[in-house]
Design a protein around this nucleic acid. Structure first.
Length: 565
RNA sequence: UGCCCGGUAGUGUAAUGGUAGCACAACAGAUUUUGGGUCUGUCUGUCAUGGUUCGAAUCCAUGCCGGGCAACCA
């Protein structure tokens, strides 16, 4: 990790840092801090993982320690190198670099040796019961379990069977290795948990070397121990696993013993954070892929245009606690806007064009006007935008019969064209069906640049593009993927897919852009003035730019209108 | 109804026995060539009941509410 962060530890930012401070005072790990981010490569990373990544890597940075990337690849039937690669891309994109990349599968031989050791110590046995029998003798949350018929199998016999399991002599499911703890333990996890199962499956890294694979609990703590992890940070649902984590490490003798600490996972309104269901959305082609901009995946939000710095700021904002809450999506959006407001260059683009003819502007004439690129950042400079007799303005910026609080263009009303002139609407042109197709306006040549020499005020400034110079573009607008804020409240017997938002994607193919927008590259972020922040999508082709709306600007007028409803 | 973990404005998060603060949201106003931004102000909170203490969000007890745990998943 970078060394410029080894400065004295500042004020703790969360309860985990307090625990670490306490460890450091007591000399628990010799002042060392070594964390790890341990994903299973069975899906793409999402915002929930971003919280964990920021916590683990951020903690290492804060204490001048280290953070590993470790793939918990103990289930060959679900994992794939595609996921390994995407995870590495995503961690780096978020702005972090690991001190080492490891795989639980690198430790399979050592893990196996510890399993034999546990058998020899009488702390593990091979159980030849069926899945159903094992489930039966485990009891229920309110009832103790009872020992199965293989529980007292002599350790030589278990050892022999375990070696033959490894040798591939048995079919999947014929035997499992179980810890011998307590079938009556109040914690279900301690009722002789399964340690190894037979899986004749090809592993993405170890190939066909193994046909037995360790379970999560067995592999995870030992992997932490091998890597010298000091603080094994995980989410709250692993809390009940901690006693088993400790039991397994203590049972093989004097090896490094990390401290497991649990925190609350991220829950976001309107956001699905289940890897399994996200996979379903991809496989059913409900979305265009793992990187669909509507997805909460890191790949999705990257394509959507969320800056990594904003995600890190968001993770700082929400904090780390043991309280299982629900964070409002607007907090994320606020972090995005806050970041982009400072950094995104401004441009003008019209989503729903309405033609405007400036009747007193000489036919065939044109000019260029100066525009400020970013009012929040003078160093962003200025640019030139073309102006001519025919323009496009936003259809929503004109109302023939405006309500009281509507400040924009209307018959007889004067508004300012951003960086341009004051114009006044003189005439509304409609087609046979009564649709407004064109506005005929006059401009005041004295207001060039947007200021009137006589000090006359207008109530609105609207965006526009010169019709002769406009670049046609496709713009994709997004809403939340789901219609309910709290997805956990969808009833068990209901189909969660029926809560998908049919309006989550709107493709607009009629957009008109100012010419400077043609110079942006895929991934570039910008603001379309008054509309929101946008970025160039990878589907763009020469002559056919495609933009994604990252997030809208705050819209007081829209809020005002909603009140009226 | 067994075990474990939680509960601070609407939401999230500080305060670690000594003035309950911050962010987002909401509302009001000022400013503004983006109904953006910025600035100012307002509203709203310690789950309940007891106890310990000069003093409790904080410690203790009980209750209430929420979450987790019975995959050969992680």
């Amino acid at each position: 990790m970078s060394t410029d962060e080894t400065a004295p530890v500042e004020k703790p930012r969360n309860f985990i840092h307090e625990i670490i401070d306490e460890h450091n005072r007591a000399g628990r790990f010799g002042g060392r801090v070594h964390t790890r981010f341990p994903p299973e490569p069975n899906g793409y990373l999402h915002l929930g993982h971003a919280k964990s990544i920021c916590l683990n890597f951020g903690t290492a940075l804060k204490y001048g320690g280290k953070c590993n990337l470790r793939f918990d690849d103990t289930n060959p039937t679900k994992e794939d190198v595609e996921y390994v690669n995407s995870i590495m891309d995503d961690v780096r994109w978020l702005g972090f670099e690991w001190d080492g990349v490891y795989y639980a599968s690198d430790y399979f031989e050592q893990l196996y040796q510890w399993a034999e050791l546990l058998i020899q110590k009488g702390l593990a046995y091979v159980d030849s019961s069926t899945l159903e029998e094992i489930r039966q003798n485990r009891g229920t949350v309110t009832q103790a379990g009872s020992p199965g018929k293989y529980r007292d199998r002599p350790s030589e016999e278990s050892l022999n069977l375990f070696r033959r399991m490894r040798a591939g002599e048995f079919a999947d499911g014929a035997h499992v290795l179980r810890a011998k703890i307590d079938l009556a333990h109040p914690n279900m996890l301690m009722r002789d948990p399964i340690l190894y199962r037979i899986r004749h499956a090809h592993h993405h890294r170890t190939g066909d070397d193994w046909c037995i694979y360790p379970m999560y609990d067995f592999a995870h703590g030992y992997s932490d121990s091998i890597e010298g992890i000091t603080h094994s940070i995980c989410t709250l649902e692993f809390e009940v696993h901690r006693v088993l984590y400790d039991w397994l490490i203590d049972s093989v003798g004097d090896i490094h013993h990390p401290q497991q600490i649990e925190f609350a996972r991220l829950n976001l309104t309107y956001t699905m954070m289940s890897k399994r269901k996200l996979l379903e959305l991809v496989e059913s082609e409900t979305v265009a892929g793992w990187d669909d901009p509507r997805m909460p995946t890191i790949a999705g939000i990257r394509r959507r245009g969320y800056p990594p710095s904003a995600i890190r700021a968001f993770c700082d904002d929400i904090g780390v606690t043991r309280f299982n809450g629900m964070t409002d999506l607007v907090v994320l959006e606020n972090a995005i806007r806050n970041d982009l407001n400072r950094t995104a260059p401004r441009y003008m683009a019209v989503l729903k064009p309405l033609k405007v003819v400036i009747t007193n502007y000489p036919e065939g004439q044109s000019e260029t006007l100066d525009a400020v690129n970013n009012p929040e950042d003078p160093s962003a400079g200025t640019r030139q935008i073309p102006f001519g007799r025919e323009l496009f303005i936003e259809h929503d910026d004109f109302l023939e019969d405006p309500p009281k609080k509507f400040f924009r263009l209307a018959p007889g009303r004067e508004v300012r064209l951003r960086w341009g002139y004051f114009i006044t609407c003189q005439e509304v042109v409609k087609d046979a069906s009564g649709q407004i197709v064109e506005l005929r306006c006059t401009y005041d040549p004295a207001t060039r640049g947007g200021n009137s020499p006589d000090g006359r005020k207008v109530k609105a400034t609207i965006h526009w593009v010169s019709a002769a110079d406009a670049i046609p573009a496709e713009v994709r607008l997004y809403e939340t993927l789901f219609t309910v804020p709290d997805l956990s409240e969808i009833p068990e017997d209901a189909d969660w897919r029926s809560y998908l938002n049919p309006n989550s994607l709107t493709v607009n193919t009629d957009a008109k852009l100012e010419p400077a927008l043609a110079n942006l590259a895929v991934g570039d972020r910008c603001q379309f003035e008054r509309l929101g922040y946008f970025c160039v999508d990878q589907d763009s082709k020469p002559g056919h730019p495609v933009f994604n709306r990252t997030v809208t600007l705050k819209d007081t007028w829209a809020k005002e209108q909603k009140k009226g409803d």
